[in-house]
């Protein structure tokens, strides 16, 4: 896992609210909590392995802020609006609490 201590701290305040994938800095692996999209738009994501409970890592982003995420070993390009509808939670912060 390539999460650095520093990025966790800087994100800590956000953690209480509902965190969206769009807010996550690149290279930070997070866990998907749920998909806040109507069913017909969520379905294609589920089919491509974006399932609640899976680990997601935004690896790159285009100039307009569209992310490429890594999930289940494959790369998926999403649009920014879609990324903003994926509720996630930090993995490392959880470990810190325990």
């Amino acid at each position: 896992m390539d999460t650095s201590e520093q990025s966790v701290e800087s994100l800590a305040p956000l953690e209480s609210g509902d965190l969206r994938l769009g807010d996550i800095p690149l290279q930070q692996t997070v866990e998907l909590v749920n998909i806040d999209l109507p069913e017909d738009q969520a379905e294609p994501l589920l089919e491509r392995g974006v399932l609640p409970g899976c680990q997601i890592c935004p690896v790159r982003s285009s100039p307009s802020g569209d992310p490429i995420i890594s999930v289940d070993g494959s790369l998926l390009a999403l649009r920014r609006e879609t990324a903003d509808c994926l509720c996630v939670r930090l993995l490392t912060a959880l470990q810190d609490v325990s």
């Binding site: 491509r48 998926l76 999403l78």
Partner: peptide, 11 residues
């Protein structure tokens, strides 16, 4: 409006 989409980038 443009609908959302996701595109797989194969290796």
């Amino acid at each position: 409006e443009a609908t959302s989409f996701s595109l797989e980038l194969p290796p």
